[in-house]
Amino acid sequence: MTGSPHTVLAGNSVRLVMLKVLVALIPGIVAHAWFFGPGIWVSLLLCTLLGVAFEALALLMRGYPLKPFLSDGSTVVTAWLLALSMPTLAPWWLYAVGMLFAILVAKHLYGGLGQNLFNPAMIGFAVLLVSFPVYMTQWPAPVELASHTPDLIESFDLVFAGQGAVSPDAYTTATPLDLLRTQRLAGDEVGGIMAQPAFGVVGGTGHEMVVLMYLLGGLLLLNYRLITWHIPVAFLGTIAVTAGVLQFLDPTNHPDPLFHLTSGGAMLAAFFILTDPVSASATPRGKLIYAGLAGFLVVMIRNYGGYPDGVAFTVLIANMAVPFIDAYTQPRVFGHGRKEKGK
């Protein structure tokens, strides 16, 4: 090679980037296992294996070398994000369909790593949400509220055989966002709904602790300089402001901003999903617009829409707008149109 540079920054690779993301996810995963039972390990493992299998299949079909692309870690990140977004203890084929859409459709039909327009995990999730809505509302109940929490062996049984010793009602429940939506449709006031045991100090019982750990992992990512502040701040900030304004106007029908921030997929999206560099806006101003749009839509869909949590859809909608946003938010290039000082 005659081209320059002849030297590159040592210890810098796509694999390392992905590895750091996985590390940052660990606190959230541990919290999830602690507060919702060990079922998460089963779905994480299952999604990872499925992801690697689909990835290998796609690479083979497309004639790409397996080793560099299987070991780059991007598939595992997608698998973990999907597993963390989905209810645990769902039948295995649900994960399979999700990963199929995530890896084959959202990623490889678009050219594989680095070229997907949509976040693969969110495509998988959205497909499941519109296709199998019943399964997607059977969330594991927090350990402290459940009459029974399946252990690891039982979780395997539930995922692969589809039946356990006890009825699903014992260990699944609706998420706080679900409860809020259905009961508000029934005419209840927000204050009353949120006094129930499913709601914790600020968000949902159990959920709020997992979310806190996601926040911790997100700060780790910021510390690694893998993400910039723009997307999390704009996203969470817009959610807080929008929810705050709505609550101020009509407190009986709108939950408080803190609840919005700490429930559903908001925190995971803020640091791990919206920040996926491939499908996110890449310019500083663009990131603010992109994440702000997503934040606004999350609150709108949660408060007025047909789905309890709009995060997956809003991520996709924001992804959709990225090429347009990027095209119109190009930063000024050195030497272009800046007032020359001192002249």
Partner: peptide, 19 residues
Amino acid sequence: IAMITAGLMSLAFMGFSGL
């Protein structure tokens, strides 16, 4: 791929349903 993209866009727009 444009058709597939349109389909995925449609999927995203389903998020607006019921709004």
